[in-house]
């Protein structure tokens, strides 16, 4: 019995929907990646910038509470 073949788009949509449930991933980082993908903006430079922004938020944000 043949299995149903998924198109590239279906496979990608499914993958980026599934990544938050991968064991051990950081939810905020995953949320950024998923957001970029759903906005059709997942490129090298956009991902680098998003990760940098997240890092700055993490470092500076938590410091303020101390």
């Amino acid at each position: 019995m043949k299995t149903e073949i998924k198109s590239a788009q279906d496979s990608l949509d499914e993958f980026f929907l599934r990544i938050p449930s991968i064991d051990g991933v950081d939810p905020k980082i995953v949320a950024k990646i998923s957001q970029l993908y759903s906005d059709k903006k997942l490129t090298d430079s956009n991902l680098t910038n998003a990760l940098h922004e997240l890092q700055m938020e993490e470092i500076n944000g938590k410091n303020k509470t101390n």
Binding site: I22, V25, D26, I29, V30, I33, L51, L54, Q55, E58
Partner: peptide, 13 residues
């Protein structure tokens, strides 16, 4: 630790 989280998450994905 943020770098470690990024590397770990990107590696897993």
């Amino acid at each position: 630790s943020q770098f470690e989280r990024m590397v770990k998450t990107l590696k897993l994905i």
